[in-house]
Design a protein around this nucleic acid. Structure first.
Lengths: 101, 101
DNA sequence: CTCATGGTTAGATGATTAGCTAATTATCGA
DNA sequence: TCGATAATTAGCTAATCATCTAACCATGAG
């Protein structure tokens, strides 16, 4: 939990996650969107990996980063829920299959 | 946004917010729940204030801290929403009046 | 095999963080 | 006014963070 929020506390990392919404992207391609060195980006990726917010898939020379939306969802909405915020309890069981992805 | 997530990245601060769910509490009473020095707690309160997650109200010798649930909600659910998360699909317009609070 | 490319590791630096003790400010009660 | 109480500020330390350059590993192309 701490690791997730820590990861989200940096604007660069939040933007990386937003970019990954559109689909997996290589480390290099992600770097093109930011004005910092590659090692710095690599460190950001590492933080995101440790928070389990992304998955790294090695493809040839590249590394594809995938957003783990379910982890983000569980952290954000789970915590919000613990404050009674915004989440509709999925009243009936038949709803559950629709809310689980 | 960064400040909110930064504030939430510490377990002590998250627990403070949870304690404040039940209602306003003085700095001293909050301290009783934690095994750190009062100045350390004061620093945590300061971080929470700067993230606008709590409001400090001076009452006599004490300072009452209030949880600003709406700020927490906006940050958490707003960010989640930007990922298409946690949004009950408000299919029809008549639903909107029920989801807005 | 060698080389260029994609990415991470090593190592350094300046900034920030969480924690402490001691000192300070502010307010209430006697 | 004086003393006790509530909380913050001052000042310190050890650890972590974001960033950089330079060096290093891995892989696909020739």
């Amino acid at each position: 939990m701490s690791r997730v929020f820590r990861a989200l506390s940096d604007p660069t990392r939040r933007r990386v996650l937003q970019l990954l919404r559109a689909g997996p992207m290589s480390a290099g391609d992600l770097c093109l969107h930011f004005d910092v060195s590659k090692p710095t980006m690599s460190a950001h990726f590492s933080v995101l990996r440790e928070a389990d917010l992304v998955h790294a898939e090695k493809v040839g020379k590249s590394i594809l980063y995938h957003l783990k939306l379910s982890v983000l969802e569980e952290a954000l909405l789970g915590f919000a829920q613990s404050f009674g915020l915004g989440v509709e309890p999925p009243a009936v069981a038949s709803d559950i299959v629709e809310t689980q992805r």
